[in-house]
């Protein structure tokens, strides 16, 4: 499974240690999960390919979950360690399993299980090697994010006769799915991609409340605030490990760029945005001082690292391939 390739790199030593999981193109529409070691530049194959999805680390940095299309055409979730050894596979007959999300302890893995006409959130308990459905049978739900070991927030579908479909955010627990009271409009707007930050107990999500896609944040005693507020679309909020910043993508510069905002003070600052390249998919370093992201500035999409100010930009992989969906490995106990 493990094959190594040396990427031609020129990395400075500071803030470039650790490992980053990502997707590398292995052929047209074919991708495999790999890990690049920032100190050595070595790239190791981790996923089986050729149809792996975006990798997600557990909080302890010991387990990596990603979707994988099986020969049957169905999508499963593979969980492996950093050496590429498969620990277990989550699959269900007649269903696609997507959107893996680790609980804070790393003992529970939530995911979306969908048939094409119905979508539910399931939770796999590693200690029991068993999965149970959360939410209710009546409510389509997807895109889970953990609030605690016992509660998720997810996107729920709202169907109203004559009005088509819309979404809102729901608190999801075993046997219940209750509409999040703080999103406005009770399903009038379309919410997506909730991301909960446990350190500050903050929830970031996308909504078209206000006319175009914006990043909204709910914080304790602050209520809900539109923190990106721009006439261009803003999407994909990613919390920093300490909850001080949210990185997000925006088209406000004419091309897709990465920006950051303080959810408390609502000051937006560009991190990686320029008129001649696309920059997306940010992931924070464990210390929160650096980010890795995808950029086309060298040609094909490749991974770049910079500090939180956007300075010290450098390539992590070369643009010889097509590298996507980076996920910076959290610090492990050994580190």
């Amino acid at each position: 499974m493990l094959s190594l390739a040396i990427a031609a790199l020129s990395l400075s030593s500071s803030a470039t240690s650790g490992e980053i999981a990502f997707l590398r193109a292995t052929g047209p529409d074919q991708r495999r999960v790999c890990i690049v070691n920032l100190s050595t530049g070595e790239v190791a194959d981790v996923g089986p390919g050729p149809w792996d999805g975006a990798p997600v680390w557990s909080a302890d940095g010991q387990k990596l979950a990603f979707t994988h299309v099986l020969p049957s055409g169905r999508t499963a979730i593979l969980v492996c360690n950093a050496a590429g050894e498969t620990l277990f596979t989550i699959s269900a007959e007649g269903r696609n399993c997507t959107s893996p999300a680790w609980s804070p302890s790393g003992q529970l893995l939530a995911y979306t299980s969908e048939t094409g006409t119905a979508s539910r959130i399931w939770v796999h308990d590693i200690s029991k090697n068993a999965a149970t459905q959360w939410g209710t049978e009546e409510r389509d739900a997807m895109a889970p994010s953990w609030k605690s070991e016992t509660e998720l927030v997810g996107v729920g579908l709202i169907k109203e006769e004559g009005k088509g479909l819309t979404t809102d955010l729901f608190d999801i627990e075993p046997g219940s799915a209750s509409l999040l009271a703080t999103t406005r409009g009770n399903g009038f707007f379309v919410e997506w991609q909730p991301v909960f930050q446990t350190v500050v107990a903050g929830l970031a999500y996308e909504s078209n409340d206000g006319g175009d896609r914006e990043i909204f944040v709910e914080l304790p005693r602050r209520g809900v605030v539109d923190v990106s507020n721009h006439r261009a679309p803003d999407w994909n909020p990613v919390w920093s490990p300490d909850g001080a910043w949210i990185a997000f993508e925006s088209l406000r510069g004419g091309t897709r760029g990465i920006y950051r905002v303080t959810p408390q003070r609502i000051i937006v600052t560009p991190i990686a945005a320029d008129a001649t390249s696309e920059n997306w998919a940010p992931s924070w370093s464990p210390s929160g001082s650096s980010l890795v992201f995808v950029s086309t500035r060298g040609g094909k999409p490749a991974l770049y690292v910079c500090d939180v100010e956007g300075d010290n930009m450098r390539a992590v992989t070369t643009p010889d391939f097509e590298d996507l969906a980076p996920a910076w490995r959290p610090e492990t106990a050994e580190q």
């Binding site: 997707l23 991708r31 999805g53 975006a54 679309p233 993508e249 088209l251 004419g254 091309t255 897709r256 696309e278 997306w280 998919a281 086309t296 999409p301 097509e322 996507l324 969906a325």
Partner: peptide, 11 residues
């Protein structure tokens, strides 16, 4: 969903 065509469409 992973690549840059999504933003091209949006633009």
């Amino acid at each position: 969903a992973l690549g840059y065509i999504a933003s091209r469409y949006a633009q």
